[in-house]
Simulated assay, not measured.
Amino acid sequence: MPAIITGKKTQRYSTEFKVKAVEWSHQAHRSVQGVAEALDIHPFMLSRWRKEYREGKFAMKRVKKAPAEAKEKVREQDEVTRLKRRIAELEEENDVLKKFQRFQAEERRKRSGSSGNTGNDTA
């Protein structure tokens, strides 16, 4: 009678793979859930790797320059987004002011035309 084999085979991931996954998940436009789904791993596993990475448990050298560059890039993107939003607000204000200016000019024309001057002055 064959022996019953129980238990799951666990997948072993290299430290390099874990570090790349963690770095990928730290990108501003990515979520842990999305990265885990793309790599076909459980999100909890990726979260655990992120924690281990923060604690320095991976024996790979971390480049300290990359996070600073990433933060600067995120700051720049936020600034660009803020400026685009401000430009849109100013353009809308400008449009409103132009409409108001046209309205005032039209009102002045109506008032000057209805002031009693018919143009039939006989001098």
Rank of each mutant, 00 (worst) to 15 (best):
V63G: 10
Y53K: 15
V32M: 09
Q27R: 14
G56V: 00
T10L: 12
R82F: 01
R30F: 00
V19W: 12
F58Y: 06
P2E: 07
N120D: 10
R86I: 13
D40T: 12
S114C: 15
M1D: 14
T118N: 08
F44T: 05
Q77L: 13
Q77P: 11
R109N: 09
S115C: 09
V80R: 13
D121K: 11
G113M: 11
M60K: 13
T122C: 07
A21I: 02
S14P: 12
A88H: 06
A3P: 10
M60F: 07
R86P: 03
E52Y: 10
A68E: 14
E55A: 07
A66M: 08
E55V: 03
I5A: 14
K98T: 05
G34Y: 06
R75S: 12
W24G: 03
P43Q: 00
Q33L: 07
R12A: 11
K98D: 01
G7S: 07
K57N: 12
T118G: 03
R82W: 06
K9R: 15
R54D: 04
A68R: 12
H42W: 00
V74M: 11
A88P: 02
A28Q: 10
D95G: 08
V63Y: 08
I87S: 01
R30D: 15
G7Q: 04
V22C: 07
V96N: 00
K84Y: 07
T15Y: 04
K51H: 15
E76I: 13
P67Y: 02
Q101I: 01
E106R: 12
K61D: 08
Q33M: 04
E76M: 14
M45A: 15
A105W: 01
A123I: 14
V35R: 02
P2W: 09
V80D: 07
G34L: 06
R111N: 15
E93W: 06
F100I: 00
D121L: 05
S112F: 08
R109D: 14
G34N: 10
K61R: 13
K73C: 09
W49C: 00
S115G: 09
R85I: 15
